[in-house]
């Protein structure tokens, strides 16, 4: 009695509903993941605060290499004090030593595109880049 057109419509609506439920499911998974991440971060932070010599106090007490400091002061002019940018230029603050080092080496070799960074990176030896990466890496939880 029902036309094939009716069955086609039913099929389409079921497919759409399936996809909508799938999206909801995905959203919930993402929400749970975000919560888990927040919780883990909180755990790490409180552990660092409670345990003597935890991540936070280790970063604070470590002697800053004077040459590393002088080299890194140059970066803050464009990337913000302590690498915390207030504008369009990316922040360095919070990035790990290994990330900063590999990014600078990629700018230096030209492997990574930039407007001005490769012109800057070419001004430093690999050892100086390491010192800069270590200086800013102190602010990161991932050393």
């Amino acid at each position: 009695m029902f036309s094939s057109r009716f069955y086609t419509l039913v099929y389409i609506s079921r497919t759409v509903r399936f996809f909508i439920s799938f999206i909801h499911f995905n959203k919930e998974i993402l929400f749970m993941a975000a919560n888990l991440r927040l919780w883990l971060t909180a755990c790490v932070l409180s552990a660092a605060a409670i345990i003597p010599g935890g991540a936070a106090s280790a970063a604070g007490s470590s002697e800053v290499n004077p040459r590393g400091l002088v080299l890194s002061l140059s970066c803050s002019s464009c990337h913000g004090t302590d690498g915390k940018s207030v504008g369009l230029i990316p922040s360095i603050y919070g990035k790990s030593t290994s990330y900063i080092e590999s990014a600078m080496l990629a700018f230096k070799s030209g492997a990574r595109y930039s407007t001005v960074m490769s012109r800057h990176a070419k001004g430093y030896t690999d050892a100086e880049i390491r010192l800069i990466a270590e200086y800013f890496g102190r602010f990161s939880r991932n050393k």
Binding site: C78, S85, G87
Partner: peptide
């Protein structure tokens, strides 16, 4: 595109250099 990017970075440059100096 690059010249436009540089114009955007000029603004980012200003915001950070004055913040690093007076802010």
């Amino acid at each position: 595109d690059q010249l436009r990017e540089e114009a955007s970075f000029a603004v980012g440059w200003y915001n950070n250099i004055v913040h690093d100096t007076w802010g």
